[in-house]
């Protein structure tokens, strides 16, 4: 029919290259990466270490800068998008500042971004409820378990109403049981907040369970080998992981990862 595609991607990468200059010569962290992430997507990046999945997330966040191609976030450059508070970033470790209480840690971005003081208490309460940590405002980080700390760091990333959540292996350091629980909670959070989430992981079940779109990457040079649109429904109880559909997607991811490795 020739109509315009009205849904422009929230995050769009075109022919993205990133080469690090090191003493051992150039390292191609990313090469020819093309990807569009739509509003409300939950996109997982999966691949072996060195495949550039974290680097790609950092480029989206403007923490690294591409050496070729373009990347836009909400139609802006990553740096502009950051200044417009387009995204919240969740790191591998919770990274809560130990001298601040949980509420204090969540207030940190609010203070830096100059959000009026009168709103702080409300926002802190709201995001702590979202991650199921209501009542922990006055605790210090060391008084919380690892999983609770990571939830607090997610709350911190949500506090300033960014539409995009960038998560870099946020549950990588947690044990299986806690991770399952947090995955479930994250899906609930995603459903209730309508955020767009980009999620780096090295766990196939985690990627398949969470995502609407799975991006399989391979190393040397870091590139995308497969993009899988998940056929799974939005409502996902934990036992969906035993269904044939789930196992089929997991199988395809595994195949994609294996293919990437046949290069070396």
């Amino acid at each position: 029919m020739g109509t315009w595609d009205v849904t422009t991607p929230v995050i769009e990468a075109k022919d993205l290259d990133l080469t690090f200059q090191t003493n051992d010569g150039p390292v191609h962290a990313l090469k020819g990466v093309d990807l569009g992430i739509e509003k409300g997507d939950f996109v997982s990046f999966i691949g072996p270490s060195g495949c550039g999945k974290t680097t790609f997330l950092r480029v989206i966040a403007g923490l690294e800068h591409a050496t070729g191609g373009t990347v836009t976030v909400n139609g802006m450059t990553p740096d502009e998008a950051r200044r417009n508070r387009a995204y919240g970033y969740v790191f591998q470790a919770a990274g809560l500042y130990p001298w601040r209480t949980i509420a204090g840690n969540i207030r940190l971005p609010l203070e830096i971004m100059g959000i009026p003081k009168s709103e702080h208490a409300d926002r802190v309460r709201r995001v702590l409820e979202l991650v199921d940590l209501a009542g922990f405002e006055k605790k210090f980080p060391w008084q919380l378990s690892g999983g609770m700390q990571q939830r607090a760091s997610i709350a911190r990333a949500l506090a300033f109403d960014a539409d995009i959540l960038l998560m870099d292996e946020p549950f990588g350091a947690l044990d299986e049981i806690v991770r399952d629980h947090l995955n479930e909670q994250l899906l609930e959070l995603w459903a209730s907040t309508q955020k767009t989430i980009a999620f780096v992981t090295h766990s196939i079940p985690e990627a398949v369970y969470l995502s609407t779109k799975i991006v399989v990457m391979s190393p040397r040079p870091g590139r995308i080998t497969d993009v899988i649109e998940s056929p799974l429904p939005k409502e996902r109880p934990l036992d969906i992981r035993d269904t044939p559909e789930f196992l089929e997607v997991a199988h395809r991811v595994r195949e994609g990862l294996r293919e990437g490795h046949s290069y070396d």
């Binding site: 923490l63 950051r82 919240g88 990274g95 500042y97 001298w99 830096i112 971004m113």
Partner: peptide, 25 residues
């Protein structure tokens, strides 16, 4: 590095990074 990166994702100025991160640390 991660603590400093967090400040960068907030577009924190040098003085904000100093008062809210470096000095207490």
């Amino acid at each position: 590095m991660m603590d400093l990166d967090l400040m960068r994702t907030y577009s924190a100025s040098r003085s904000q990074t100093f008062w809210k991160l470096r000095l207490p640390a």
